[in-house]
């Protein structure tokens, strides 16, 4: 395995949401999705900062799309998860899973741990 890629919690969520949205992932839809699914409100500016940072790191790729009247004629920027981003998500998921798999049921008595 290549070197570990660090991913923050918000970054992880954003990457996953971009994946969920597929071709329709741009800042406003990502924000709505995050709000709807995770019940997590994030301000637009902060989301932009995060999206661009992920792009700079190489986890996201982007291309300019169409514009609408509502946007005052300004284009949308659509994002997609790059191979590197997918790898990073994969890593995070695996490390989590391996931890979950080895949970001692006695320590986690209040929830039912699926084996």
């Amino acid at each position: 395995m290549s070197e570990r890629i660090s991913l923050g919690e918000l970054e992880e969520l954003i990457l996953l949401t971009v994946g969920v949205l597929g071709n329709e992932a741009y800042s406003v839809s990502v924000r709505e999705e995050l709000e709807g699914r995770q019940n997590r409100t994030i301000s637009l500016g902060a989301l932009h900062t995060a999206l661009y940072r992920l792009e700079r790191k190489g986890h996201l790729d982007s291309k300019l799309g169409e514009s609408t009247k509502k946007r005052g004629g300004k284009p949308k920027r659509f994002f997609s998860v790059t191979a590197q981003g997918q790898l990073a998500l994969q890593q995070v998921r695996e490390s989590r899973l391996s931890l979950w798999n080895d949970i001692n049921p006695a320590a986690f008595s209040s929830i039912k741990v699926r084996k």
Binding site: S27, Y52, R71, K74
Partner: peptide, 21 residues
């Protein structure tokens, strides 16, 4: 004042959309 120059158009579009909604 606060918006980065290079990505202004698209960010402005996003902001406008959210504002309208």
């Amino acid at each position: 004042l606060l918006c980065p120059r290079e990505r202004r158009a698209e960010i402005k579009g996003d902001f406008n959309e959210v504002y309208q909604t």
